[in-house]
Design a binder for these strands. Structure first.
Lengths: 359, 359
DNA sequence: CGTTAGCACTCTGGCATGGAGAGTGCTAAC
DNA sequence: GTTAGCACTCTCCATGCCAGAGTGCTAACG
């Protein structure tokens, strides 16, 4: 029974909050339970260790801290991190201006190629937060065809290259009934580009009959064109149906450095959980729908394997057009303020980049 | 001093080889040192444990086995694995016919898209050998342009899409001095496709002056064409200069399961060493030059961090045209026969696929 | 002369033991 | 409400010990 019983859900007074914060700060850097003595030594709290002990007991009563065992220091619970995060989520700690400039410069360096952006985003997040960086491609609600190209591979084999408006490139092989030349294919591609540019899969389905009627030439050429148009529809529709296209990640090794993952088994479970597309899709859906930075702490994550890691995720892009998610994954014992600030900055940057595609 | 001193480099008699093989087989599956008793129990050697002990001592004298400590069983040394591998490298243990069929089927499923092949190769190798699977893209000696496409992004911004003969797609953004329409770009692209198809960067440099003279149209259009042609040259040349394009990997998690990597620090070092492009490039060079399956065991690997892992690598593709490498990475305590067989099979399969590109 | 049984020897791994150290919770005094 | 003091608890680490596994040697055997 703590001396002064505090309602479990009541707001914390300033001093309690300061001490909670001190515990978290210390634990995040040292990774070992922190005692009352250490707190008064390292943080100028202006009270004695006995007083701090009282407050620690209260915080534990409120479920924000816990004890690994009787005579160890305190460590934050998931709820403790949660209240801490709530108190800083508004601002976070964006990277220093110099670093922001450097990163902008790096993004300027990679020539337009969306894949490169996502890779770079993941890499940058990883190196800045010393955690794992994650980035998904910007996925449009309904993809639009920007450009169609056909390349002859063999007599009866052609490669279809489909550039979508968001920069995604889809490629597929088409087996042909009759031999065709590159010239034939180029003619068809030009025709398709003329008629199908900026259309969605649904649009193409609608205009297809009209388009076919307008088609001159011989039966063979008409067949070829129809076959390719149908393939385009299928490819685009398949892309639309995909809930998660691709997740770029970097710095998973950084997470291995954390002492809580010294024995690799735990980490392996985490990686395995991350391969679950459905889980990722759900996460992404939550984040993109609300449009804000989200922090998922420890057991708040649905899969039990993710119970010891936290995710900081932010959406980017334009609702209704194309959206993606960037973020970091680290141990629950994570520098949340910095992570939130960094993820916020990178998502802002990605926003700007995506905007350019629609300018 | 062993009873019968054996010359360190002399060939092993049949019984010694059988026992070496038994030690390796047992150690590969159990991961714990194997004693003379265990050997006679599990493998029908037809002799007593004392005799086996004598032979074990000889093998240790020859540097093929070692002792973790006085009273533990034997474990193979790198040299032990090496002699073992030499004795099986000719045949390996190719996957059973059923599995071969299944894999062929899977490769048939993915439509032509080289990236997918490499991913699939890495994934297949990983799941079959329960180790990490590796695959590099087939890298041509001098890439040839197969197809050029230009897509208008904004008034003065175009995206260049370059399809190379091996299926690689390169994409880059081009800033333009004057506003252009998609129609302008299409015209230029058609022209370039006509003149530059199947050429290398060097070829294009040679014909560029002639090509420019032949160019009609106004100055603006000529400028645009030249600018794009130069960009194509640069892009292709940069691709040629790359020693390692991209390494696809899968199943790194499998390696984490091995008890020798229970504490993650070691494994982290391995991963870090693998990020060293120069090292990879050297490896690939060795493998592609000789054109055979290569096994790099433990300390045979140049980087000290790779001292506890082995690589089984095989080239694929056509020398002088395009070559790549597939293989697996696992602990030195690895099922070499199976790994060699599997890698051999997959590289053969990749050979067939690449051949199709040149058919 | 190779093979085998027997035996002494060695080293690890697991387990119990016993402080030292860290940190708590309580209480009484300020 | 805050603080000093103190008894108490629990981990961590070093130590010592024992059982088990496996070796290397030797003497006997076919």
């Amino acid at each position: 029974m703590a001396r002064r019983m505090r309602p479990t859900s009541g707001p914390l007074d300033a001093r309690s909050r300061a001490i909670l914060q001190a515990v978290i700060d210390d634990y995040v850097t040292t990774a070992s339970p922190v005692g009352s003595q250490t707190l008064v030594e390292r943080y100028s709290l202006g009270v004695s260790s006995a007083t701090v002990r009282g407050i620690l007991a209260d915080l534990e009563g409120a479920g924000l801290l816990t004890h690994p065992h009787t005579s160890a220091g305190r460590i934050p619970t998931d709820a403790g991190y949660r209240t801490y995060v709530e108190s800083i989520v508004e601002l976070g700690a964006p990277p220093p201006a110099v670093e922001q400039l450097m990163i902008r410069h790096q993004f300027g360096q990679v020539e337009f190629a969306s894949e490169q952006w996502f890779r770079l985003a993941a890499t940058t997040l990883a190196s800045m937060t010393r955690s794992a960086g994650l980035a998904t491609a910007a996925k449009p609600v309904a993809a639009r065809v920007r450009r169609i190209d056909l390349v002859a591979i063999q007599d009866r084999l052609a490669s279809l290259i489909l550039v979508l408006r968001e920069g995604t490139i889809k490629q597929g092989l088409i087996a042909l009934d009759v031999p065709v030349t590159q010239a034939d294919l180029t003619r068809v591609a030009n025709l398709l580009n003329e008629r199908l540019a900026e259309l969605t899969a649904a649009d193409i389905v609608t205009i297809l009959p009209r388009f076919e009627r307008a088609l001159g030439g011989d039966a063979e050429s008409r067949n070829l064109t129809r076959k390719i148009a149908e393939r385009i529809i299928r490819t685009v529709a398949e892309f639309d149906a995909l809930r998660v296209e691709e997740v770029y990640s970097d710095g998973l090794l950084n997470v291995m450095e954390a002492p809580e993952f010294a024995q690799s088994e735990k980490l392996r479970r985490v990686f395995t959980a991350l391969e679950n597309r459905a889980y990722l899709a759900d996460l992404i859906a939550v984040v993109t729908e609300t449009g804000r930075i989200h922090v998922f702490i420890g057991r708040e994550n649905a899969p039990a394997e993710m119970g010891e890691v936290s995710l900081v995720l932010a959406p980017y892009g334009q609702a209704g057009r194309a959206v993606g998610v960037v973020g970091v994954l680290g141990p629950t014992r994570m520098a949340y303020a910095q992570a939130i600030g960094t993820v916020g900055f990178i998502s802002g940057l990605m926003n700007e980049l995506v905007d350019h595609l629609y300018a």
